[in-house]
Design a binder for these strands. Structure first.
Lengths: 133, 133
DNA sequence: CGGGTTTACTTCCCAATAGAGAGTACGCAC
DNA sequence: GTGCGTACTCTCTATTGGGAAGTAAACCCG
């Protein structure tokens, strides 16, 4: 269906067969497109923030998931953690270089979702329903 | 790399407080950044494909999740479903206009993940481990 | 002409995962 | 010494996802 030409040429690599299950790309993709991963990367793209701030901004996240997501992103070298040994504890999180690179790609995606969300999600009453969702 | 300035100015809307849990943007974002949603949108960005083709290309997906994901994306108006009443059945899926728009934003993200995956995922032995993952 | 094959699903069951909420450590103000 | 505040971790339960089998109906094979 070459009618309109594709938005951008894909590297041949995922043209056929996408990429194998369990390969590094899949793993990384799962981390950064995870429900909370996106929100945290997005939030951090505004600058350094501490735990409690992130918790507030990623509204609805549980502490368990915040901890887990941050740990994963830190391990991936996308966010860096700076803990000050004071009491009560204070830990600041920020994006690394790679994290910023990534957030630059994430932002337009989220912006698009934001712009189109109302159109798409509301006014879908007569278009066939998925049971659970 | 943009040392200190942000990659792109975010709409004020998600600058503070991100967006509320359960709002349309969140729902849509969850659909399109879901593990399988990304892969299917990406695969379809190459053109119309039938069920069995998608199943093969999104390696590792279960039939249940393929059905569910396609249903969600169709409901969101991102993919369109064209069923031919033949036996054995033949159903073709393709992106809608909005779907193409979206895939144009998704592709660079996936390409980035693809390029950085090896660096990031391999060679992370000494950097602290997350239990399950 | 009976049986196997093919395709696009749906349903059921169980394992894995996410979420809610309580628990913890520690210093400080009162 | 009681209580607060922060950044976690732990445990228990709710939700979700994968695997496999089931289904319909035209076709090919022998």
């Amino acid at each position: 269906m070459e009618a309109t030409t594709h938005p951008s040429p894909l590297p041949r690599s995922f043209a056929d067969g996408v990429f194998p299950a369990g390969c590094p790309s899949r793993i990384l993709l799962d981390h950064i497109t995870s429900k909370w991963g996106v929100l945290i990367l997005l939030s951090l793209s505004e600058g350094e923030q501490r735990w409690s701030e992130l918790r507030r901004r990623a509204e609805g996240i549980s502490e368990k998931m915040l901890a887990q997501t941050l740990k994963t992103l830190e391990r991936d070298g996308l966010v860096s953690r700076h803990a000050q040994p004071v009491i009560p504890p204070r830990v600041d999180y920020s994006l690394t270089g790679k994290g910023y690179e990534l957030s630059g790609l994430l932002v337009p995606l989220v912006a698009w979702a934001f712009d189109n969300a109302d159109d798409i999600i509301n006014g879908q009453s007569s278009r066939g329903a998925v049971p659970g969702k």
